[in-house]
Write a protein that binds this DNA or RNA. Sequence first.
DNA 1: ATAATAGGCAACCAGATGGTTGCATGTCAA
DNA 2: TTGACATGCAACCATCTGGTTGCCTATTAT
Lengths: 104, 104
Amino acid sequence: MDEVFKALADASRRSLLDRLHAKNGQTLNELCDGLAMTRQAVTKHLGILEAANLVGTLKHGREKLHYINPVPIHQIGERWIRKFERGKLAALSELKRQLEKRDE
Amino acid sequence: MDEVFKALADASRRSLLDRLHAKNGQTLNELCDGLAMTRQAVTKHLGILEAANLVGTLKHGREKLHYINPVPIHQIGERWIRKFERGKLAALSELKRQLEKRDE
DNA sequence: ATAATAGGCAACCAGATGGTTGCATGTCAA
DNA sequence: TTGACATGCAACCATCTGGTTGCCTATTAT
């Protein structure tokens, strides 16, 4: 879980996921295209995404194809985000109550 | 958005949010309790959470009360997580297709 | 008034992170 | 088979990050 959060913390990596979301199964060079960094930097980012199980790869000849794995993202939504959404209204009204109390 | 992801990337900070989720409106010292780091370190973490608008504070005498703000978390769920959930099944079946193709 | 309590601020430090360059390897095409 | 192409690997570098220590300020309680 921690690895996934860490992986998602970087804007370049989120952008890579976006690109894969737009077109799955791209090669390394394809993913480098238009990015303001070297291929090696992209390799590192993809490595981190892979380690976090956010992308899977498939070697096809001399090319390496990258596929998004939506499961960890979904898990974060399920196990983490929703937990805080449940208390949302309660938390807001509590905050409101406290803010009003301040001016007494 | 980037600030929120960065803030959530650290396990200590997520744990602080958990604590606030369990009991909202805690003071700094309360939040320090039982954690294996100095008060100053916790202050920094809370500062980052505050900068990301994940917690709001209220001064009450010499105490500083911390309240969770669920909105940014909710936004990440809405604007980011859901996007990838939509393509989930499609992505999985695509991956499956590719994996099978490999063994041809 | 004074001591204890709650917190703020700044300097410093080691290790992680994001990036680079340079070169090696494996695969495809001519 | 030889050159071009897609990728891998390693060393290096600057900066960011998470943590520390030391000291200062403000509020409360005795």
